[in-house]
Computed example of a mutant assay.
Amino acid sequence: MTRIGIFFGSNTGNTRKIAKMIKKRFPDDERIADPLNVNKATPELIAGYDHLILGTPTLGEGLLPGLDADCQQESWAEFLPRLADVDFSGKTVALYGLGDQEKYPDNFADALGELYEFVTAHGAKVVGQWPTDGYDFIASKAEIDGEFVGLVQDLDNQKMLLEDRLETWLLLIAGEFGWVMK
């Protein structure tokens, strides 16, 4: 049975919170693994999944979380190079990211764009593009042709939209992951 892996990088715990919210929507679905921080993951573990949900915050002025971004622990910045030899061909990947559109409007959710560039360069099929409507930013590496490459959450300025956006996005990717949403 195909299992779905949920992996995240985090600094403050918000990306982890969303990963847990995703898993909680499907408590009885044994195909969905418990969310795991990438600082505890291995390339072999990631390679073992056909379907992945990957989450990242954007830190400072467009950085992936990691030691260079003043995180206390390693994260995506250190883990992506370890994934360099993983072939993502045949894998379906949904991405979500966090950013602050008011404080960092020039590089809003840029780390999500970096994650997207990495997995697509390694052959992944990315699903779950998200509209940019309702956001107020200047530029984002996560935007392609007027859409974000995945779900974007701004918990600093739009926390009240978290639940609705997440639910709508999960419905959007459900078919790609073989989920039946009620």
Rank of each mutant, 00 (worst) to 15 (best):
G146M: 10
E167I: 14
E147R: 14
D145T: 03
W169H: 09
D156H: 10
G150P: 05
L172Q: 08
E147G: 00
L151Q: 09
S140C: 07
K141C: 07
M160Q: 15
F148H: 14
M160H: 08
F148T: 12
E143N: 11
E143Y: 09
R165E: 01
V149K: 05
M160E: 12
K159R: 15
L170E: 00
E143K: 15
A142H: 02
S140F: 06
N157Q: 13
D154Y: 11
I138E: 11
T168S: 12
Q158G: 02
E143L: 09
E167H: 09
L155R: 11
D145H: 04
K141L: 15
L155V: 14
A142Y: 02
S140Q: 10
W169E: 01
I144T: 13
G146T: 07
S140P: 10
G150D: 03
V149W: 01
L171R: 13
E147T: 09
L171T: 10
Q153Y: 10
V149R: 04
A142P: 03
V152E: 08
Q158S: 12
K159A: 15
Q153E: 15
V149F: 00
D164F: 06
I138T: 13
K159E: 15
R165M: 01
F137T: 06
L172M: 11
E143V: 15
L166C: 01
D164P: 00
